[in-house]
């Protein structure tokens, strides 16, 4: 069963073709890696799948529902959560508030009369424990190290209780211990039956974590399949590694 299907996705930016008739599918409960050289359209694809930018043409099907236009505030409704290549935490808010804002009431009227009760706080503390930031809960997000901010972003995504997690280069610039923590979280998500889409440049991690890998080049699909097979292909090595 596929949770995400993309058919002939196309996206232009000022005449530049960023995504070119891209079709692929992601099976439910798997970890799918998306790799490709810089500028190959990986982040553009993530932005389309999370509704942050509209596609020009093509079709996105999420859990069997074909979507003409996915808006960013609808992504949560379809069970999609994401992190960003360039960390986008709420810098001048506390770590706790960065997480509480994800779990509290969305309806304006309800939110006006809602205080963060014990239920929300308990959920947030549980995630803070999981990402190793419990002792930083009152700190402003901007005072965290780069790696801690990446973990905070992942914590924020975890709190959405999504079905699909889009992680855009979560390991970039991290110390090994933090990377190990994220690996554990990704394994746990899979064990919980969640789907993870992982954009990553580290081939070792792709081999270790992913069930399937999608290789993109110039906005097109270059190869798709199990990492052990795909990463050996000549065209992949040429495009990605310049070999």
């Amino acid at each position: 069963m596929n949770i995400i299907e993309a058919k002939n996705l196309t996206k232009h930016f000022d005449g530049v073709l960023a995504i070119d008739r891209l079709s692929f599918s992601v099976a439910n409960g798997t970890i799918t890696g998306i790799i490709g050289p810089n500028g190959s359209g990986k982040t553009t694809l993530t932005n389309i799948l999370s509704g942050m930018i509209p596609k020009d043409n093509g079709m996105i099907i999420i859990d069997g529902v074909a979507l003409e236009r996915l808006k960013s505030y609808d992504a949560r409704r379809y069970g999609i959560a994401r992190t960003f290549q360039n960390v986008r935490v709420f810098e001048q808010m506390s770590v706790l508030d960065n997480l509480l804002v994800v779990v509290t009431e969305r309806n304006v009227w309800g939110a006006l009369f809602e205080r963060h009760g014990e239920y929300h706080r308990a959920r947030v503390l549980e995630v803070l424990e999981r990402i190793g930031l419990r002792d930083k809960q009152t700190a402003l997000a901007r005072t965290l190290s780069y790696g801690q901010r990446k973990l905070l972003e992942i914590g924020r995504a975890l709190l959405t209780d999504a079905r699909v997690y889009l992680f855009d280069e979560p390991f970039a610039g991290l110390f090994p211990e933090m990377a190990k923590l994220i690996v554990t979280i990704i394994h746990e998500l899979k064990a919980d039956g969640k789907t993870v889409i992982l954009i990553e440049h580290n081939m070792e991690l792709i081999r270790e974590l992913c069930d399937t890998v999608i290789v993109m080049d110039s906005g097109r699909l270059l190869a798709e399949g199990a990492p052990k097979n795909v990463l050996k292909k000549r065209e992949v090595l040429e495009a990605y590694l310049g070999e």
């Binding site: 949560r76 986008r88 709420f90 969305r106 809602e114 924020r156």
Partner: peptide, 26 residues
């Protein structure tokens, strides 16, 4: 207002409106 969940969302809009939208906020 600022002590409510609504107030927290306002601050998040100030920080990064586009990112907040991804969490289901209109």
């Amino acid at each position: 207002i600022i002590g409510s969940s609504f107030g927290r969302a306002l601050k998040a809009i100030r920080e990064d409106e586009e990112a907040l939208k991804c969490f289901g906020y209109h």
